[in-house]
Design a protein around this nucleic acid. Structure first.
Lengths: 185, 185
DNA sequence: CTTGCCAGTGAACGATGTTCAAGACATTTT
DNA sequence: AAAATGTCTTGAACATCGTTCACTGGCAAG
């Protein structure tokens, strides 16, 4: 009984890591079910044994990326720094991460779930953790703000920085799900 | 001879307006070649008589949206205003436009061309016109900046405002090219 | 009236994500 | 040990997508 669950977790991890490598190399648009499973050495249908569908697999990859971003930011902006310096370090850390992980970072916001399909709760929490990273030093800079105001302002700050990084990134102009281009006769 | 070209332009316009309506109603992800042509009352292949492919058609729709945004901003931020007030009016105008044209506005940055396919020059110019709208009052506020610094700062300002509007918009969580969901037996 | 031409048409194609009957394998029961 | 009973894995089949191209109908020129 236990071995089956281990095998399942092993399969999930194998697909996750293969998909991550593939996205990092080819971009989110280059991730096809058949290539992915061939590269991972498993059958096409195995995706649906390990995950609900390919979209959810991508969400899992994005969650990993978000966790790595979170770790990188915590390392670059330790709480030994003064609040203002910490904010700057967070912004610089974000830029650095985006440059060092271009395609995986792009996948974070390029990917869209089908309409009316909610983002899993555990993935939302990963976002919240990033925002709390900003809200921390912000609270010390602005002790007058309420918790709600703090959360809103952290979101706004992140959005502004992200917008600048995003528009400056060359990654924004590339990658689309492949079109058909049949060979000419 | 002349009538043929008129007919071609007529077809382009028909497809353009139908696609625009469809995107405004269903979102960019809901735009399928077959639905579009059926709705426009033309054959499937007609798309490729009028445009290079569906992607380029979308770029044309986006160009129209960008032109409407440009016009809306020029109306909301006339040069009779003081520079600082004009900047604020531009930002408010952008938010207003995004709210009033959610899906068409979302299509502006949701849409991605296939890799290695360059954005047409005339579409880049439409972007530049928006940025010049920002650079105008900015130049009066900061006469010390060079033209290049002005352009860069206008881009950054736009990106920051856009990032905030984007992340606050509910449109960011919806819309993906439809997946298969075969009916159960 | 005949001829040539070309824009419009839609069946066919390759690619894609997803499903599911059937086989492979392990575990438990007799 | 053999049989029974699940569970996981597999890949052919399916629906749907953008795109192509041989055909055709109607207009203009001869």
């Amino acid at each position: 009984m236990g071995r089956r669950d281990e095998g399942r977790e092993e399969l999930r991890l194998r697909l996750l890591e293969t998909a991550e490598r593939h996205i990092a190399a080819q971009g989110l648009a280059g991730l096809k079910a058949r290539e992915l499973t061939a590269e991972a050495g498993v059958a096409l249908g195995s995706i649906y044994n390990a995950f609900e569908n390919l979209d959810l697999l991508v969400v899992h990859v994005n969650a990993r990326t978000l966790a790595r971003l979170d770790a990188a930011l915590r390392e670059m902006a330790p709480d030994t720094l003064a609040p203002a310096e910490r904010m700057v370090a967070l912004a610089r850390g974000y830029v650095r991460f985006a440059l060092d992980n271009r395609r995986l970072w792009a996948a974070l916001f390029d990917h869209r779930l089908p309409e009316h399909v909610a983002v899993p709760e555990w993935h939302r929490e990963a976002h919240v953790r990033i925002l709390q990273l900003i809200a921390g030093p912000l609270a010390r800079l602005r002790p007058d703000l309420s918790v709600e105001q703090l959360a809103l302002r952290a979101r706004t700050l992140f959005a502004a920085v992200h917008g600048v990084v995003h528009l400056s990134s060359p990654a924004s102009s590339s990658a689309r799900p492949g079109r058909c281009s049949r060979r000419r006769s």
